[in-house]
């Protein structure tokens, strides 16, 4: 039998909870800081035109490699400095948020719809449908995601919309897997049996009894996938097969800035890198919280 008494257990548990809250910026369980960061980024993306002080795609070659305003040589006109073409870094970050979020959200939603639909079909219908969908999923998951994405990007060519399609095509399998598992257990629940007894068709059961009960898992997964998708988008842009220049994508900014790193132009890489990190971290923490809140069974994910 476990030896720790009630009081000792509770004080240790309290300390652990406090530590965990601190680590994940939580208060009463709700991830305040992640949600705050995400909201700010969304607002920035929406109001990019208003917020950005300069055109992100046009620079003045005379203003090249200006450091942030607080460093020597910086000007208040370019708060976060300029890049190798003299473009305003702040403006590029602001518009980059739009690119990252639009691409990220759309890819996650497309992948989610495709993966959820196939997961439900696979799980509920079973038989050869299940076999085919799951073998394709296995094959898909066996391919390294980034290599696969580069391969697809090389075929269809770079454009923001193509990136969305590529990311959805690469990541739908994650949804299909998880949703299928959910469906397999839902299928055995009594209310699904009773729907069969009531004479509902398979289509009705999938639409009315299965889908609403997997939506939560889908949302949780989407939030967790957001980080993965955004990192992949940034990687593709970094490698030059993503969002085509001169569009201001964060990954692209990293790629452009890396040459200046040795020369001490740190702001060209550290700033977009920080933005990517904050976005991904926030999405993951929010996803973790949603996962625990919506569905304790998903914890093993």
């Amino acid at each position: 039998m476990n030896g720790s008494g009630p009081a000792a257990g509770s004080s240790r548990a309290a300390a652990l909870t406090l530590a965990w809250r601190f680590a994940s910026f939580r208060s009463e369980g709700f991830p305040v800081l992640p949600v705050l960061i995400l909201s700010v980024l969304v607002l920035v993306a929406v109001f990019a035109n208003v917020l950005a002080p300069h055109d992100p795609e046009v620079g003045a070659l005379g203003d090249r490699f200006r450091p942030p305003a607080w460093q020597e040589g910086g000007t208040r006109d370019h708060l976060l400095g300029t890049d190798h073409l003299g473009r305003d870094v702040l403006s590029r970050l602001v518009f980059g948020a739009r690119v990252s979020l639009v691409v990220g959200f759309m890819a996650v939603i497309f992948a989610g719809i495709l993966g959820t639909a196939l997961g439900i079909l696979s799980g509920y219908l079973g038989g050869w449908v299940d076999q085919v969908i799951m073998r394709v999923t296995d094959a898909w998951l066996a391919l390294p995601a980034l290599t696969f994405a580069i391969f697809l990007a090389a075929i269809v060519g770079p454009s923001a919309m193509n990136i969305v399609i590529i990311l959805a095509a690469v990541y739908w399998t994650r949804y299909a897997r998880v949703i299928r598992g959910e469906v397999l257990s839902l299928k055995e629940r009594d209310f699904v049996r009773l729907a069969i007894v009531a004479g509902c068709s398979k289509r009705t059961i999938m639409r009315r009894h299965i889908l609403p009960n997997v939506v939560n898992s889908g949302i949780v997964l989407a939030t967790l996938m957001l980080g993965v998708v955004i990192v992949t988008e940034a990687s593709l842009s970094f490698l030059g097969v993503g969002v085509p220049p001169p569009k201001p994508a964060w990954g692209l900014m990293l790629a452009d800035g890396k040459k200046g790193l040795m020369a001490g132009y740190w702001w060209l890489t550290v700033l977009p890198g920080t933005c990517i990190m904050l976005l991904v971290l926030s999405a993951n923490l929010l996803g973790d919280w949603l996962r625990v809140k919506f569905d304790p069974q998903l914890r093993q994910l």
């Binding site: 629940r189 009594d190 209310f191 049996r193 009773l194 009960n213």
Partner: peptide
């Protein structure tokens, strides 16, 4: 028609 054992599992929670 049928009535099953567990009234928590036999009603769709989303309806």
């Amino acid at each position: 028609q049928a009535v099953f054992q567990d009234p928590f599992a036999s009603l769709n929670p989303r309806m």
